[in-house]
């Protein structure tokens, strides 16, 4: 990892840490949503079944939101332009962002996971560390996705509109409510191209069936490919304009 990547990551972390209200919201928002989700499903077995998919969905949702808005601000306030004139590479900029914001995406993931386990008392199988590693991968995909899609928004209002466009369809098609195999053929086919589908599939296998990371290699591979793809596409959006 280059020192330029670390410099960008360090600055991103410093920026969030110095904004106390944002830090408070980063901590409170997942707690509120996990509470609402938990208490809206009074049936314990039903909650145990739904919790992994809810967790994967919230990781994608929060990761996408925080990164999308942060990177958009970088574009609109002119600081991105300033960095593009400097000696650091486009990939360093995107990777630095990924690294910095991943820390907060992970913080949110851990808050939600441990809140669900210890406060809502959901049952899970499988190794804790393997579950957390997989959640981290989902977080990486979310951060890469947010960075890429921020290139298509001109302001925060437009970025927020990407949630119903990019995130909500994935919620319906990922297997959160209905198994993807029970979806109409066309929708099932579309679901194969959505990262959340593999996030939900993988986390269910880990938490409900007690499988290991080795058993869900396909989901890990596809999610890693999504992350790499979004990362490369995000850096391409920073190219010289003609």
């Amino acid at each position: 990892m280059s020192s330029s990547t670390l410099n960008v990551a360090r600055r991103v972390i410093l920026q969030v840490v110095r904004d106390r209200r944002t830090i408070a919201l980063i901590i409170v928002a997942p707690l509120v949503i996990a509470t609402v989700a938990g208490f809206s499903i009074p049936d314990k077995m039903m909650l145990d079944n739904a919790a992994p998919a809810i967790l994967a969905t919230l990781i994608i949702f929060f990761g996408f939101l925080i990164t999308g808005i942060s990177f958009l601000r970088e574009r609109t306030q002119g600081t991105l332009e300033r960095m593009l004139v400097s000696p650091i590479s486009r990939m360093d900029i995107v990777a630095g962002y990924l690294l910095g914001l991943l820390l907060f995406a992970l913080l949110q993931t851990l808050i939600m996971f441990f809140y669900m386990v210890y406060v809502l008392s959901i049952n899970y199988q499988g190794d804790l560390w393997q579950i957390l590693v997989f959640q981290m991968l989902i977080g990486i995909v979310a951060v890469c996705m947010g960075t890429f899609f921020s290139a298509f928004a001109r302001n925060e209002f437009q970025m927020i509109q990407f949630i119903p466009l990019i995130i909500v369809p994935q919620i319906f098609l990922s297997g959160l409510f209905i198994q993807t195999s029970q979806l109409p053929y066309v929708l099932e086919w579309i679901s194969k191209f959505l990262p959340l589908t593999y996030g939900v599939e993988g986390i269910k296998a880990l938490m409900q069936q007690g499988q290991s990371l080795l058993d869900i290699g396909k989901d890990i591979g596809i999610l890693a490919a999504f992350a790499a793809g979004f990362l490369v596409l995000a850096s391409l959006t920073l190219r010289q304009k003609s």
Binding site: R11, L14, Q15, V16, R18, D19, Q77, G78, T79, E81, R82
Partner: peptide, 8 residues
């Protein structure tokens, strides 16, 4: 534009 990080 000033192009600075307002939180820093």
């Amino acid at each position: 534009l000033p192009a600075l990080y307002s939180e820093l």
